[in-house]
Design a protein around this nucleic acid. Structure first.
Lengths: 348, 348
DNA sequence: TTGTATGCGTTATCAC
DNA sequence: GTGATAACGCATACAA
């Protein structure tokens, strides 16, 4: 393959001049520049990235900050990031996976500060509505640190990109599937959320409503605090109170509790169950036939996009134009093989 | 980051000796080797791939052979490959996208021969049942050319990997969704295939049967030859003949004809429709509400895996352990944004 | 405005 | 067994 030296020779200029043209450094006579461009065309020159990286000796330093505490979904995400990190080392990119207290914007901001001071090139964080975080993001960006929000966005912030699903789409998808499962008949959906004040959950619910409006009715929402004991108690009570419920849509976490209620149900015409995130216990419930659909936000793809995006930002290859991740629909028949943790061997 | 020179210095040996150890070239005293390994551990040395690639000047040459002729699915796949090819150039990998006559094993074999003679490192082909192709694959592998089958496997061949969905899984997934849409009620599915002799279609149908057995019955299969006029005529006739049909499962192509029949249907309780492959006309039908579900084999992922796999083979990084691609379920609400052809701008 | 020279970390070749 | 060293193609500091 032709090198830049070949280009320079053909153009009748020195290597440095050719380099100035390809890297747009300026200070080249238009006449020379034109000859170089012609030579590039003629030879089909393509910049050798391996060589460029080598000569620059660039080392990328990224960090991903996830909320700590135990939650099957974030456990999965953490593992995915850790796997990605070890694989990235050969590409000269260092990815630190960190944890900060959940629901603690101040702690998050301190960590962001520290990372920036440490010279990190880019950071991925799980967004929240806290205004303080939006400010911290602006400050970081001014210091040239790339910022990507993950899973949940930070409204009103000027992060470089949001990588995650559109929750309204996820809710509408759930609505469509529940509608399909009713086959045109009337029915009543029991919505379960973590909290009605959580933006993500509210968006999902609104999406659901939009699609089922006119055909299916909704029971009052249950707020399960994303905790399985709470979900279990509340769903159990709601089902007992309202025998007309034909479907349950859980927009949040704590679904182990929901599954327990269903398992305990008598008779065989249980309500249709649609919930979010493929994690060990939802996978098991799907396989056992206790639930019907899992809508997954594909954290694997999220992680891949975050890494790719941070790299692009670090290279100043222009702004990221990330399309939202499309939520994936799983029934028991199309479940992906269960991944194992590379070290513990445990299914994640 | 530490370099191999650092390792050599710490181990008290020359650069060349350290290199012999990391690249397992042999001819090193065990004592020296041990010291080098210790130094590697201690420093956390990671081989710099950019430098290695540079010094070797390796250029990968791959080819993908697709059946020619017009078929929306393969059009899409072709575009995906072409896009991938242009992006791969910067990584020093050349990917030629070729076309050979469909259903012509001899033509395919000639092309394979020619590519091998030309020194290509790896080839992806769309498999078929033809035994001659299996033989050609063996011959190529003996010449050191990596071979990956795509979309459809070549039974009994020793290709390096198959990249595609498991058709039985796809069929079972369709069955589950149709079952769900019947909400426990009885029903009758009209199966549409290209030909019953086509292995892929037969596998899908068998998967469907497995899941719906006992609850839903099946009408006699329609063989639509994957041609929309044929499908249109046959489905139309079948629906007229059997008013008990509550669902249609199309395992093959020619679905534009199926959609036309549905569009023309009177009344509003049309059968549930599940079919395969997200292409422009199935996307439109989904958006218009003429069909319910599209099961997609995600050619994007297929293309990515093929490229990654061929590279791995060319590097002799060991055999590929590709998990099958999980078929993706689309309803109108979770459709991915329509991709555009990078040059023509046409939606694909 | 243009040109020359050096180094990045590997691989591979040749000499000891 | 071991060691020195010339490429590889690019970026860049420096010279003209």
């Amino acid at each position: 393959m032709p090198t830049l030296s070949d280009v320079a020779r053909l153009a009748g200029v020195s290597y440095a001049t050719a380099d100035r043209v390809v890297n747009a450094r300026g200070g080249v006579a238009e006449k020379s520049a034109r000859r170089v461009r012609t030579a590039i065309q003629e030879l089909g020159y393509v910049r050798n990235v391996a060589a460029a990286n080598l000569s620059q000796g660039r080392l990328y330093r990224f960090a991903a900050i996830l909320p700590d505490g135990s939650n099957a979904f974030f456990d999965r995400m953490r593992t995915l990031f850790e796997n990605a990190a070890s694989g990235l080392l050969v590409d000269r990119v260092e990815l630190a996976v960190e944890a900060v207290a959940a629901f603690d914007p101040a702690a998050l901001n301190r960590r962001l500060q520290a990372l920036a001071d440490d010279g990190v090139d880019g950071i991925a964080i799980v967004g929240s509505d806290a205004a303080e975080v939006a400010d911290a993001i602006s400050a970081l960006r001014e210091r040239g640190v790339g910022i990507i929000t993950l899973v949940s966005d930070v409204p009103g912030s000027d992060r470089d990109a949001y990588v995650g699903i559109d929750n309204a789409i996820a809710g509408r998808t759930a609505g469509r599937l529940i509608l399909l499962a009713h086959g045109g008949r009337a029915g009543r959906i029991l919505p379960v959320v973590g909290a009605l004040s959580a933006r993500d959950h509210a968006e999902r619910l609104a999406g659901l409503r939009e699609v089922v409006a006119g055909t299916l009715s909704l029971a009052p929402e249950i707020e399960g605090r994303d905790r399985h004991e709470v979900v279990e108690a509340q769903v159990s009570a709601a089902l007992a109170a309202d025998p007309a419920i034909t479907a349950i849509y859980s927009a949040g976490a704590g679904n182990a509790g929901l599954v327990r209620v269903i398992e305990a149900l008598e008779g065989d015409d249980r309500p249709v169950i649609v919930l979010h995130e493929l994690v060990p216990h939802t996978r098991r419930a799907l396989e056992a036939g206790h639930i019907d659909i899992v809508i997954d936000q594909r954290p694997e793809e999220g992680v891949a996009r975050v890494v790719e995006g941070l790299r692009q930002l670090a290279d100043r290859r222009g702004p990221i134009v990330a399309e939202p991740i499309v939520p994936s629909i799983y029934v028991r028949e199309n479940l992906p093989p269960a991944p194992n943790h590379p070290e513990t061997g445990k299914t994640i």
